[in-house]
Structure formats: structure tokens, C-alpha cells
Amino acid sequence: MQPAHIQDITLDDQTLTVSFELASKNWKVALQDGWHRSPSVHTTEEQGAADRLAEAVTLIETIRQEWRLAPSSRVVIVYEAGQDGFWICRALQKRGYEVVIVDPASIPVERQARRAKTDRLDAIRLLCCLRGWLRGERDRLHAVRVPEAEAEEIRHLVRDRGQLQKEVGQHRDRIRKLLRTVGCWAQVGPAFATQLERGEVVCHDGAALPGCLRQRLMRECERLALVARQLQELEATLTEQLPETTAQSVAALRRLRGIGQVGAHRLVLELFWRRFNNARQVGSCVGLVPQPYDSGQSRVDQGISKQGNRRVRALLIEMAWMWLRYQPDSALTHWFMRRTATGTSAPSAGKRGKRVAIVAVARKLIIALWRYLKDGIVPDGAELKHG
């Protein structure tokens, strides 16, 4: 009796698959084709980024010659998304290689309490997942969409503004906390540094601030002034640095009541640089879709997935509350009011119900905004700003 033979019909034997396990000290490079049973694992240890990448490329070409693969054979390289970003992908694509960047959380691992884990084993596991993914087993890994270089570059603008806004709040909060240690409840406003220099900021009993504390507060004020100036300069020139199509999308969002400059910029630069095929992809990209757990008699609602861009997800929750305030006649606001009406049998009544319902509003809102930018369909019942 002949044994059953499963033929691989989607992955050519001439395809060379390569996985990179990236680390600061070295890279583990695992290679395998359709003929060798075990992968070949090597280590690249060059110190410079360009030198290490060139060493990895030389290794790939050497193995291709040793295994007698055709010069035109397909080479697919995979590595996990991380702090190295997308420069490796772009550099390899210029050399003619196919590159797949993987979400690290999508790689399946054993569930034993103790399991062996090394960079070598991780590289081999990643290689096996890639070969299965190429055969059509799409649950083996989730590929990350690589943004265009221009979209990635202008994204630094909105992220830098968010970081500067955060630092401004941190410096002001630190100054207030230092003042409270001596019983001073002075307001940290624009004129605080001048008042501090004149000695007008005093302790609770009217005594002058201790010398060391005053010096520390002066240094904090200098850092606060620097960050505030950088934030002001960035906000003044941010719109001018955007491409024309991006600026048009931002202007379109700002025409809706309840959406301001910060929210419009962040949505366009962080999310809408992508192209979505349907509303389901939009909701899953921001992590606002439910994650049910239904196995046997166990049925548990695990809440939302919280995958995707956390900055956009946090912004959408805030934007959903602002939408309820400034768009009271919209269909989304009416839906929320019906779901959270007090004194009724609505499933989302009460404070906790409102927090749950606002997540659904955020998901519906981002889908409505996507349709608004894509097809020009204004959300049902929404009002535009005058002028």
C-alpha cells in the first residue's frame, strides 16, 4: 500500500525562505528551501547597520549558490516588527527580495509551563510559520502593512506634538508638586517664571522659598519654556509641512462639528494613510471589535481586542464623547441615548453601561468618518461647521 503523499502546490521547491531574528548584538539568520529537511542557521555579527545587512545578504546569496538554486529563484524574508522599524524591509526590497514583517503577538507558541526559548529556536519557528503562511495557512502569522516612506515621515510630526504636549503637562505638574511641599499653592501660569525671579512665590507662612528648591524650580521653568516654545513652533508650521492630499483630508474632518485640529491630524496621519476594503477592517485596525470566548458551555465576553494603534484608540474614545456633546442631532448620539436611557430596561443603562456603549460609538464613528473621507458621505444627522 502506497503511503499518502501531500503535494505542496502553492510553495515552489525553488523558493528560498529566510527569517531574521534581530538583536542588538547579532542577527540569527535561518534559511530553508523545499529540498533540505532542516533549516540552516547562521549568525551575523557586524557592528554597523549597513555592514550587518550586507553580511546577511551575502549569506543569502552564498547559500543560494551552495544549494544550486537558480539566480532568478524566489527569496522571501521575514522578521518581526519592532524597534528597527521598516528600514530593513525597504533596503531588502531594493535588492529584489520579498519581505514580510510579522506581528510578534501572532506567532503561536507552546503552552507548556516551561519551554525552551533561544534566538536560534525563535528564528527556526519564524521560518516554519512563514513557509506555512506561504502555503496558504493564513493563521500562522499576521503580516504588518508597511507604510510608504512619506507617510511614515510625516507621522513624526503628530507624534512629536503629542510628546511635547505631554512634557508640558509633566513640567507643570512637577512644579506644582514641588511647591506644595512648602505649602505654596500658587498657580503655574505663563507669568510664574517672572514671579519666581522676583521672589513673589513664597511658602505658606510668607517666608522665602529655600534656596535649593528655588534653583530647582528655576531649572524646571527653563525646561518648560523650551518645550512650550518648541510646541508652539511645531503647531504653527505643521499644516504647511503636510502633503496636499493629506491637508485636504485634515480640512475635511475639521469641517465636522466636534472634531478639532489635533484629532483631525492624528486620525489622518496615524490611521487614514492606509487603504481599507470594508468597514470590518477599519474597526479591527483600531482594536474596537469584540473578542468573544465560546467553547463548550463557557461563553465569556472578553471585551474589545485592543489591537492596532493605541494612540488612535484612545483618541477615538475622547472623540466619541465630544461627538455626543457637539452633534446632539446625529444618529450616533440618538443611538447612544436610547442604549443608556435611565429608568428603562436598556442593557447599557447606568455608568458602567455608558462606558461600554461609548466604545461602540467610537467604533461606529471611525467607520462613519472613513466613509466620509472615502466617499464624501456625511454621517447621518451630523452638522458641519459654519464658514
Rank of each mutant, 00 (worst) to 15 (best):
L196K: 02
A247F: 06
R90P: 00
G82Q: 15
V158A: 12
E235P: 00
G258K: 02
L53G: 03
G296K: 13
D205Q: 06
K117L: 08
I9F: 04
F192M: 04
A149D: 02
V361F: 09
F336E: 08
A357N: 11
V359N: 10
R114F: 13
K177P: 01
D173P: 00
L213D: 06
L217C: 07
P108M: 11
R299D: 02
T15G: 06
W27I: 07
L256N: 01
Q327C: 06
T333G: 10
E240D: 15
R299L: 09
C184G: 08
V361W: 09
S305N: 07
K94T: 11
T344D: 12
K351C: 12
K374M: 10
K117D: 02
V18Y: 12
G381V: 11
R172H: 04
T194D: 04
D160K: 01
V76E: 07
D51H: 09
P243T: 06
R214P: 00
R255G: 08
G162R: 05
R135P: 00
A314V: 10
G350K: 09
A123Q: 03
V250L: 06
A279V: 10
H5L: 14
R111E: 15
E110V: 12
L373K: 11
I317A: 07
A193V: 04
V144T: 05
I88H: 04
W185A: 15
Q327H: 06
P104V: 07
A208W: 10
V300N: 01
G376A: 15
Q165P: 00
A252D: 08
A279T: 07
A236S: 13
L69M: 15
V227A: 14
V168K: 08
A360H: 14
E152W: 06
N278T: 09
T194Q: 05
T340A: 11
Q32K: 11
Y97D: 02
P347C: 14
V100G: 05
S348D: 07
I107C: 03
A193G: 05
V168A: 13
L196C: 04
A191W: 02
R74H: 04
K166P: 00
Y293E: 03
H5Q: 13
F336G: 10
A331D: 14
A225W: 07
R223L: 15
P147Y: 07
V109W: 01
K94R: 14
G263M: 03
H334I: 00
R257M: 05
Q241A: 15
V286N: 06
R338S: 15
L267T: 03
G387M: 10
R176K: 14
V75C: 15
R52W: 06
A149K: 03
A23Q: 12
Q230M: 03
H36Q: 15
V41F: 13
D103R: 09
Q307T: 08
E150S: 13
V158I: 14
L271V: 07
I101E: 05
L196V: 04
A208Q: 07
V286K: 11
I124Q: 13
W133C: 03
L267N: 03
V76Y: 02
V29Y: 08
I88T: 13
H5D: 10
